[in-house]
Computed example of a mutant assay.
Amino acid sequence: MRNRSSHGGRHELGQNFLTHRPTIRGIVDLVSATRGPILEIGAGDGALTVPLASLGRELTAIDVDEHRIRALRRRLPHASVQQADALRYPLDHPVVVGNVPYHLTTPILRRLLEGNGWQHAILLTQWEVARKRAGVGGGTMMTAAAAPWFDFSLHGRVPARHYVPMPSVDGGILRITRREAPLVDPRERDAYERFVRRMFTGRGSGLPALVQTSAGFARARARAVLADSGIGLDRLPRDLGAEQWARLWCRVSGR
């Protein structure tokens, strides 16, 4: 097949192309509120790339599909359009944007949250991923572990019919912003993340028991730490916001 990428067909590449112009405009508007060079991952046929180029900022667009890259280079000769893998390419531009292939969402999010050099990420992901990362209906372990350093917000649901071919689930627009002032000292990040992991995976019924086992405290001290942190004893880890996690860590770690 002439148009088949050397990396595989559409299914292997996870390609579902966004066609809904209001959604495209909404994503570009979010990008326009930021500053600095832009990196688009998963450029595809350029549905986002072309309007992003109209912002007049330095733009790099990457995709693994060599056929689409060639076509996009012809359309946008003044942009940097490169054949590259988002799992290997440096995600170090101030602004990262993209319609993320659904099967690559988690590894790309991990790369972003573990990396430096970017300030804003505006990503079109599966609806459930966007909703959970933004803490709608309860937070996740990944979001809680990153919350002291990043702010997550949800900017709309994108029905599956707005893609071609149509995927089996809706999409969601997720914005991640690196905090200018971290809520926890970056030098404590590894220890903090281990604490969060123990809180989400540890044994115990209720937050006092989880703090008791995760921090090695007596039950009375665990309850006192939660009270000092302004956290109700009937809460669960998924109920805590970024500031609550930071206050809890401050008291657990003795800072």
Rank of each mutant, 00 (worst) to 15 (best):
R2T: 14
N3P: 06
S5K: 08
S6L: 13
H7I: 09
G9L: 12
R10S: 05
H11D: 14
E12H: 12
G14T: 05
G14M: 04
Q15M: 14
T19K: 15
T19L: 14
H20I: 07
R21K: 03
R25I: 04
R25Q: 03
R25S: 04
D29C: 02
L30Y: 07
L30D: 05
S32C: 05
G36W: 08
L39V: 06
G42D: 09
G44S: 10
G46H: 05
V50T: 05
P51W: 00
A53W: 00
S54L: 13
S54D: 15
S54H: 11
L55R: 11
A61E: 11
A61M: 12
I62F: 13
V64S: 11
R70D: 13
R70F: 08
R75W: 08
H78Y: 06
Q82K: 04
Q82T: 04
R88E: 15
R88H: 15
R88S: 15
V95T: 05
V95F: 04
P101C: 08
P101F: 05
Y102H: 03
L104W: 05
T105V: 14
T106L: 14
P107D: 03
E114S: 01
G115E: 01
N116F: 11
N116D: 15
G117E: 14
G117L: 12
W118Y: 01
H120D: 10
L124E: 12
W127N: 13
V129Q: 04
A130W: 04
R133P: 06
R133V: 04
G135S: 02
G137S: 10
G137M: 11
G138H: 00
T140C: 00
M141E: 12
A145C: 00
P148S: 14
P148A: 14
F150R: 09
D151Y: 12
F152M: 04
L154I: 06
H155W: 07
V158L: 02
V158D: 03
P159R: 13
A160I: 10
A160E: 08
R161T: 00
H162R: 06
P165C: 10
V169W: 12
D170T: 02
I173M: 11
I173W: 10
I176S: 09
T177N: 08
R178S: 07
L183P: 07
V184I: 15
E188Q: 13
E193H: 00
E193R: 08
R198P: 03
F200G: 11
T201Y: 07
T201W: 06
G202E: 02
R203W: 09
G204A: 04
L207G: 00
L207T: 01
L207Q: 02
A209P: 02
L210S: 10
V211R: 11
V211Y: 12
G216L: 11
A218E: 15
R219F: 15
R219T: 10
A220T: 13
R221W: 10
R221I: 12
D228T: 09
S229D: 03
I231M: 02
G232V: 02
R235Q: 07
P237L: 14
D239M: 00
D239C: 01
L240M: 08
A242Q: 06
L248W: 07
L248A: 09
W249G: 00
C250W: 14
R251L: 14
S253F: 11
G254E: 03
